[in-house]
Design a protein around this nucleic acid. Structure first.
Lengths: 192, 192
DNA sequence: ACCGGATTTAGCACTTGGTACTAATATGAG
DNA sequence: CTCATATTAGTACCAAGTGCTAAATCCGGT
C-alpha cells in the first residue's frame, strides 16, 4: 500500500494549502485514518501544526496590510513639478483587465490620472470636484500607460484645472480634465 | 488609580489592534502588571484570546483572497434591469480613504459608478467611451454609497448613455454621465 | 505458511496560551 | 479606619498540539 500513503500525503498538502485551518482531527476524519497517522504525515512532509499555519497566514496578511497603502498613488510618479506638470507610468497586468476580453477596466486608467492630478497639486489637501474623461482606445494587459498631467489655473479661487493625457507607446488612449479643489488648512468644513 | 486602569485598557486595545499577536504574557510584561490583570482587562473589553485573534485575521485574509477578484464589479449590485437601470451599494472603509483626511479617494466612487454602468449594459462587451463626473460632497469611511444607474439610448448606433447618481443617506455625493460603447446593437430595445 | 519491514494505531507525559473560578492581598478615597 | 475597587495568586481544565514508546496490522517475498 505504498500508494495509499503517498497519495494521502499529497492530498493532505494541497488540502492544507487551500484551507490551512483544519485540525489534525478534521484531517483524520476526512481521510478515515487516525490522528497519529496524520501527525506522522505532517512530520514527513514538514507541515507545521495548525497554530503555526494560522500565525503564518495572519502575519503575512498583516504585512500585506502595511504594504497595501499603495492605494495612495496608482502608478509610479517619475517626474513632477508641483502646480505645473507631472508624469506617471502604470503597468497594466491581468489583474486590471476584464477577464472576458482582456481590456483594462476604465477605473484603473481613471485612478492613475486622478492620482496624478491630486499629486501634482501643491497643497495639503486636493480633492477632485469634477472631471470629464475620454477613453480613446482600449488598453490591454502587458501595456505600459504613461500619463502626463498639466496644471492650468482657474479664475475661481482654490480651483485648478489639470489636463491629463495617457498614452501607450505614442498613441493616446485616454484623456481627462480634472477640476481640482484645494484647501490650505486641515479645514474639515470649508467645502461642503 | 482609576485612571491607571482605563488608560491601560485603552492602550491595550489599540496595541492589540495594530499587533494582534501579543500573548497575555507579553502584554503583562509590557504594562508591568500580572497576567491575570491583563486577562481581566481583556474580559472587560471583550477582547478575545490570542488564538481567536489570529484566526480572525487569518480567516479575513483568506476570505479577502477569495473575494478580491471582485475587481470585476466594485460594490454589490442589488437590483438590475438590463439596459434600463441598476442599483449598487458600496461600503466605504478606511482602506478607501486618504489617510490624511479620511475622505474617500475619487477613483473608488468612479469605480463603483463605472462598474455599474458596464454591468447595466446588456451586451457581451461594453466599454466606457467618455464620461463626465461631478464629485459633489466628500464621502468618509463608514458611509454607505448607493449608486443608481439609468440607461438612456443614444442616436448613434452602438452607443448608450448611462446616468449614475450616488448618494449617502439622501444626499447626492457624486454624479456621472457615461457614454458607453457596445459591440452589438441594443437588440432588446426593439420597442413594440 | 512464516518472517520482517513498513505502516498504522494507541497511550502517556508534557507544552502553550489560554478559560473559569475562587481566594487572598493591595491600594486608595471617603 | 474601612470598604470597595483593583490586582495578584492559585487551582482545575481545555484544545491542539510535540515527543516518545510500544503494540498491532498489513503486505510482499521466499
Amino acid at each position: 500500500m505504498k500508494l495509499q500513503k503517498r497519495e494521502r500525503q499529497a492530498r493532505l498538502s494541497s488540502l492544507l494549502e487551500e484551507n490551512p485551518l483544519l485540525t489534525d482531527g478534521d484531517l483524520a476524519e476526512h481521510f478515515g485514518v487516525s490522528v497519529q497517522t496524520i501527525r506522522l504525515d505532517r512530520m514527513e512532509k514538514g507541515i507545521p501544526e495548525l497554530r503555526e499555519r494560522l500565525k503564518d497566514v495572519a502575519v503575512r496578511s498583516l504585512d500585506d496590510v502595511k504594504s497595501l497603502p499603495i492605494d495612495e498613488v496608482i502608478g509610479d510618479i517619475i517626474d513632477i513639478e508641483l502646480d505645473k506638470r507631472a508624469v506617471s507610468v502604470f503597468d497594466v497586468t491581468k489583474d486590471h483587465v476584464f477577464q472576458r476580453n482582456g481590456i483594462a477596466r476604465g477605473h484603473h486608467l481613471f485612478a492613475q490620472a486622478n492620482s496624478l492630478a491630486v499629486a501634482v497639486i501643491d497643497d495639503e489637501l486636493a480633492l477632485t470636484a469634477k472631471s470629464s474623461l475620454n477613453f480613446i482606445k482600449p488598453v490591454r494587459a502587458g501595456e505600459r500607460v504613461v500619463a502626463k498631467a498639466a496644471v492650468r489655473p482657474d479664475k475661481r479661487p482654490r480651483r485648478s484645472i489639470v489636463e491629463v493625457i495617457s498614452t501607450v507607446g505614442d498613441e493616446p488612449v485616454f484623456t481627462g480634465t480634472f477640476e481640482m479643489y484645494r484647501t490650505h488648512e486641515s479645514g474639515k468644513e470649508g467645502q461642503s
